[in-house]
Simulated scan of single mutants.
Amino acid sequence: MKCALVTGGSRGIGSAICKKLAESKEYHILINYQSNVEAAEKTLEEVKQIGATGEIIKFNVSDATEVTEALTKWQDANPNAIVEVIVNNAGITKDGLFMWMSYEDWNNVINTSLNGFFNVTNFFIQKMLRNKYGRIVNMVSVSGVKGTPGQTNYSAAKGAVVAATKALAQEVAKRNITVNAVAPGFIRTDMTGELDEKELVKMIPINRFGEAEEVADLVGFLASRKASYITGEVININGGIYS
């Protein structure tokens, strides 16, 4: 059984990615969630309606012990399963000016994006190397590439994942494993629901927010065999927000 794991896969961009990966019918989709079981089950239902198989797995990506326990339990129950695709999508924001930022808000954001990438990817990387095939896609952000005021913590976390992407890509390329990052700009999701869209579109040459499905299309391509010569790249999908 070939599998694709999407962290933070229950809502928004993560959910759209699960559905996009389901379309190829190539993978059993592993939908990771932390708290919103209803959203995870809805995404699973939609994956099944597309004609793929899937299941939900609960763990907090930032908790190394919890990740290892949940994935070991899953692996033991599915000894013949091979995870070929990992999409590290789980992330949180705790925005605020740096001078007023609490250690907790700094730490939580770094732990989820950066340590989450490590905890999940590190669990599977040796198996991928033995299998001599893999696709790792890390969801970063325009904030991690250009930096966004009010998001020093988020920019730091995503910027670190950008650097990790480039380094890991070089380590595993000979084994037919690609590692890329996708950096969305303003995408219409729960996470951007609080933002002033009318004001922000003035910064975007394409003059609108992006849709989660547009990001999922890009991730789906990078996770496919068609993208076998692309690795160590950070691909921006932001409507031309800066160039």
Rank of each mutant, 00 (worst) to 15 (best):
Q126H: 07
F59N: 01
M128R: 07
S243N: 03
K73W: 02
I241L: 15
Y103P: 09
H28R: 12
E23R: 14
G159R: 09
A90V: 11
K226D: 15
S24G: 14
K166R: 15
A156C: 12
L44N: 04
A52Y: 01
E233Q: 14
K146W: 08
S155P: 09
K198D: 11
A77P: 08
P79G: 12
G220M: 13
E104I: 05
P184M: 06
A212Y: 11
W106Y: 12
G185V: 11
G96D: 12
I187G: 00
I57A: 10
G54R: 14
N207L: 02
A156F: 12
F117V: 09
Y103A: 06
A173F: 11
G185S: 06
D95M: 05
I110E: 01
R11I: 10
A40G: 13
T53G: 13
L200S: 05
C3R: 05
N115C: 06
S155N: 03
L21G: 11
C18T: 10
K226A: 15
F117T: 11
M99F: 14
I125P: 03
T7H: 06
L218W: 10
R11S: 13
S62E: 14
A216S: 14
V47C: 08
D95F: 09
N122I: 00
F221C: 08
L129E: 05
N88C: 12
E41F: 00
N107S: 07
N36W: 04
N122T: 01
A4D: 06
W74R: 00
R175F: 04
M203G: 08
T192W: 14
I92C: 08
V179P: 07
V85F: 11
D95P: 00
K2M: 01
A16L: 09
V234F: 06
I50F: 04
V215W: 03
R175L: 05
E171K: 14
A163T: 15
I50A: 09
A183G: 03
W106I: 02
A77L: 04
I206W: 12
S62V: 00
V215L: 01
